[in-house]
């Protein structure tokens, strides 16, 4: 069951990747990468259940945080031209 769900999420991530590759604008690419990050979090949680190793959930938490901060940091850089706080 978890394997099938993980494969479906992986397929969705692959479809999103094609949008990240084709663009056309930089925002389309960031959007696609952000969505792929969301799917990666779901995938990590599912993998934790597939292999019965709950520690994957900690990785999922960290990945969710990094994904969010990376998106925000990149957009901030686009808007202001630097990353000072």
């Amino acid at each position: 069951m978890f394997e099938a769900a993980a494969l479906a999420v992986l397929t969705a991530a692959a479809v999103t990747l094609s949008r990240a590759l084709t663009g056309p604008s930089i925002y389309d690419r960031i959007l696609a990468v952000n969505v792929m990050g969301t799917k990666t979090v779901a995938l990590l949680a599912l993998i934790g259940f597939v292999y019965e190793r709950p520690h994957f959930l900690d990785i999922a938490i960290v990945y969710a945080l990094i994904n969010f901060i990376a998106t925000i940091a990149f957009l901030r850089y686009r808007e202001r031209g630097d990353l000072r706080i």
Partner: peptide
């Protein structure tokens, strides 16, 4: 899980299929 996978797949197809950035959001 099935509902979640369907929603995620439709999100991906939507990002691929919609005409401009704002509707892909």
């Amino acid at each position: 899980l099935v509902l979640g996978c369907l929603a995620m797949l439709s999100a991906s197809v939507g990002i691929l299929r919609f005409p401009d950035f704002y509707s892909r959001i």
